Amino acid sequence: MSKDPALAELQDRIGHRFKDRELLIRALTHSSFGDGAGDRSNNERLEFLGDRILGLLTAEKLYETFADVAEGGLAPRLNALVRRETCARVALDAGIDKALRLSKSEERGGGREKDSILGDACEAMIGALYLDGGLKVARHFYDSFWKKELKKVIDKPRDPKTALQEWALAQGYDVPRYTIVGRSGPDHAPKFKVEVSLEGVKPERGKGSSKQAAERNAAEALFKRETDNG
């Protein structure tokens, strides 16, 4: 269908040949490409659609997988499976990063490695697959590339911040406090360092490409240390 080897390789990897070539190209086109030619030329509208389909597919999968788990146990798992960092990892696994269309400045700024761009492109791809082949095709992509992520929520069902807060309150501590203690890197690719603390407990720190990611990593480190020692 296309002479572009990156597009051909991506379609081979995801197991779907697009009938509508423009849908595939649009899903891979960041808003910076072509000096921001408008939202009908980039993947923002497809990302909006794909985000909703991803939520549906994830809710469906969790409903089937955890038949005896109440809603309160499903919600944090869903949040873990649809968050930006998860979608970014899937984008890398699927090879979406190699086929992205970015502006030269975004390319130089490491756009192919940014969680925000990768995550949005992954959701846009889901939207494009849905429009090109229906829910069955979108579900095939989800089932293929969310396997590893699903295993993680089976083993670690709760968000690290939720797990830490529940443990802290059960032990008689106050709610954990999160403080940004460092930020580095350029504005387009920042790195955050966050410290989480509980009164009377040695704090832990976490790093991440966003404040939220750094907080989760810090919470996970403190929770693991305290529960392993306990």
Rank of each mutant, 00 (worst) to 15 (best):
148 K>N: 15
133 G>D: 11
134 G>V: 03
194 V>N: 10
144 S>M: 10
198 L>K: 02
160 P>T: 09
143 D>C: 05
148 K>D: 15
184 S>V: 06
191 K>F: 04
147 K>G: 01
196 V>S: 02
181 V>W: 09
196 V>A: 05
154 I>P: 03
169 L>E: 00
165 Q>Y: 08
155 D>K: 12
143 D>G: 06
141 F>K: 08
153 V>F: 02
141 F>M: 04
154 I>K: 10
193 K>Q: 08
145 F>I: 01
142 Y>G: 05
181 V>I: 14
186 P>M: 07
162 T>W: 01
162 T>D: 09
158 R>G: 07
196 V>T: 06
194 V>M: 12
166 E>S: 06
196 V>F: 03
131 L>A: 10
136 K>T: 10
152 K>A: 11
157 P>A: 03
177 R>E: 14
151 K>H: 09
182 G>D: 04
160 P>H: 13
144 S>N: 02
152 K>S: 08
176 P>E: 10
199 E>Q: 06
185 G>Y: 11
171 Q>P: 11
162 T>N: 06
154 I>M: 07
192 F>L: 04
144 S>K: 00
131 L>Y: 01
149 E>P: 08
149 E>A: 07
175 V>C: 13
168 A>S: 12
169 L>G: 00
166 E>L: 09
160 P>Y: 09
140 H>R: 10
132 D>M: 12
137 V>K: 12
196 V>K: 03
195 E>K: 15
185 G>S: 07
187 D>M: 13
185 G>Q: 08
175 V>W: 15
141 F>L: 05
169 L>D: 00
168 A>C: 14
152 K>Y: 09
174 D>L: 13
151 K>E: 15
164 L>G: 14
155 D>E: 15
134 G>I: 07
145 F>V: 04
159 D>F: 05
141 F>D: 01
182 G>F: 00
155 D>C: 07
167 W>S: 12
138 A>R: 05
158 R>I: 04
163 A>I: 13
174 D>V: 13
154 I>Y: 10
146 W>R: 03
146 W>S: 04
149 E>S: 08
160 P>M: 11
152 K>V: 11
145 F>N: 03
180 I>D: 12
145 F>Q: 01
171 Q>R: 15
186 P>A: 02
136 K>W: 09
199 E>M: 06
151 K>F: 07
187 D>T: 14
133 G>T: 10
164 L>V: 11
193 K>H: 04
183 R>V: 08
158 R>D: 15
138 A>P: 07
169 L>N: 01
163 A>C: 08
148 K>S: 14
190 P>S: 03
150 L>H: 07
144 S>L: 07
148 K>G: 13
159 D>H: 13
132 D>I: 13
182 G>T: 06
167 W>N: 15
182 G>P: 01
137 V>H: 06
140 H>G: 12
180 I>S: 12
169 L>V: 01
179 T>G: 05
198 L>D: 00
167 W>G: 12
143 D>M: 06
172 G>T: 07
174 D>S: 13
170 A>S: 10
138 A>M: 05
133 G>E: 10
138 A>N: 06
144 S>I: 00
136 K>F: 04
158 R>A: 14
161 K>P: 06
132 D>Y: 01
145 F>Y: 12
200 G>C: 03
192 F>K: 01
178 Y>S: 02
180 I>G: 13
152 K>N: 08
